[in-house]
C-alpha cells in the first residue's frame, strides 16, 4: 500500500530524510520509531502530499505522491502531531465538516468510526477546545477516518500522553487494524514497537533497521547483561571504568552492559565484589537496546 524508494529531503543544511526506502503491505500496522528530529514528520508529510521530496519516489495506494496528489488526498486519512481541528466547533460539527470536505456523510461511514465515536458521543455538543487531551485525540481520529480512508497516517498520536491513555489509543489502532485498515504510525516511545506488525527504526533521517519487533533483537551484536546493586550511581561509575565493556548505560532499575564472551559475566562479578546485593544476568535485548547499538555502529 505504501512504497518508498530512495526518498530524500533537505532543509538548508539539515538532511531531514536521507535516502529512505521501505514498503508497507495492505492491512499492516507499521511503526516509524525514532526521537524528535529523526525525520518522521517530514516523511509522513511527503507521503500525505503536504511536502515535496528533493529526490526519490513514493506511492500510496498505487498513486504517485507528486503526480497523483489529488487522488491521495481523497483516499488517505491523516492525523497530524499537533491538534488541528476547529476549537470553536463542537464534536459533531467538526465531524460533519470533515465528512463534507470529502464529499461524504457521517452516516454513510458510521460503521468505521462507531467504536471510537461512541466514547465521545455523550459530549457531542461540546466545543473541541473544551475537551480533554484524550477526547481531542479520539475526535481527531474520528475526523481522520470519516471518509473511510484506505491508509491512515498518524504522526506521534501518543506523545506527551500518560501510560493509561497510550494503552487506550493503541487498543483503538488494534481495532482499526482488525477491520483491515493499513496504518502508518510514528512514535518516539520504543516500548510501543511491540504493538506494531513491523517497524522502521529511524534516526537523523536514516533508517537503521526495518523488521518485525520480534526479529530486531535477534540482530543484536554481543551479549547483553543486566547488572544491579544497591548503589546504582556508584555501580554505573565503576562499570564505566572497565575498558573491556563494549557499552554500558542505565536502563530502568538496572544497568545494561554489552560484552563479547559468555565468560565475561563472571569477570564482571569479580570486578564488582565491593557492591552489596550485586546481580548480573544475561537478558534478551529490547528494541531500545537495539536502537542504542544501531546509533553507535
Amino acid at each position: 500500500m505504501i512504497r518508498v524508494e530512495q526518498l530524500s529531503k533537505t532543509y538548508g543544511d539539515v538532511r531531514a530524510v536521507r535516502e529512505v526506502s521501505f514498503a508497507v503491505e495492505r492491512g499492516e500496522l507499521f511503526g516509524l520509531i525514532g526521537p524528535d528530529g529523526a525525520g518522521k514528520t517530514s516523511l509522513i508529510r511527503i507521503l500525505t502530499t503536504l511536502l515535496r521530496a528533493d529526490s526519490g519516489t513514493a506511492t500510496v495506494g498505487g498513486y504517485d505522491v507528486v503526480t497523483d496528489y489529488r487522488a491521495i488526498r481523497n483516499t488517505v486519512g491523516y492525523m497530524p502531531g499537533r491538534f488541528s481541528l476547529y476549537q470553536d466547533l463542537s464534536i459533531e460539527e467538526n465531524l460533519h465538516f470533515f465528512a463534507t470536505l470529502f464529499g461524504t456523510t457521517v452516516r454513510e461511514n458510521y460503521a468505521v468510526i462507531r467504536p471510537i465515536y461512541e466514547q465521545i458521543e455523550p459530549f457531542k455538543k461540546r466545543r473541541a477546545g473544551q475537551l480533554s487531551g484524550g477526547m481531542k485525540q479520539k475526535l481527531a481520529l474520528c475526523c481522520a477516518l470519516v471518509h473511510q480512508p484506505t491508509v491512515l497516517f498518524l504522526d506521534e498520536p501518543t506523545t506527551g500522553v500518560d501510560v493509561v491513555s497510550r494503552k487506550e489509543f493503541w487498543d483503538m489502532l488494534g481495532l482499526l487494524k482488525s477491520q483491515g485498515m493499513t496504518i502508518l504510525v510514528s512514535t518516539p516511545y520504543m516500548d510501543e514497537a511491540s504493538l506494531c506488525d513491523r517497524i522502521a527504526l529511524i534516526q537523523e533521517g536514516k533508517i537503521l533497521s526495518v523488521d518485525t519487533p520480534a526479529a530486531i533483537p535477534g540482530q543484536y551484536r554481543g551479549i547483553l547483561l543486566a547488572v544491579r546493586a544497591d548503589e546504582i550511581y556508584a555501580l554505573l561509575k565503576d562499570l564505566r571504568a572497565l575498558p573491556w565493556l563494549k557499552s554500558c548505560y542505565a536502563f530502568g532499575e538496572s544497568i545494561h552492559c554489552t560484552v563479547g564472551q559468555p565468560a565475561d559475566a563472571a569477570r564482571l562479578r569479580e570486578a564488582l565484589t565491593g557492591h552489596s546485593n550485586l546481580e548480573v544476568k544475561e537478558i534478551p535485548a529490547s528494541i531500545e537496546d537495539c536502537f542504542i547499538q544501531l546509533m553507535n555502529p
Binding site: 525514532g34 526521537p35 524528535d36 529523526a38 518516539p188 520504543m190 534516526q203 536502537f291 542504542i292 553507535n296
Partner: peptide, 16 residues
Amino acid sequence: GGVDPITRRQFWDLIY
C-alpha cells in the same frame, strides 16, 4: 520528552 535514547541517558547523568 522526544529525546533519543542515548541523549536521554546523558541527560540523566547530568541529573545524577
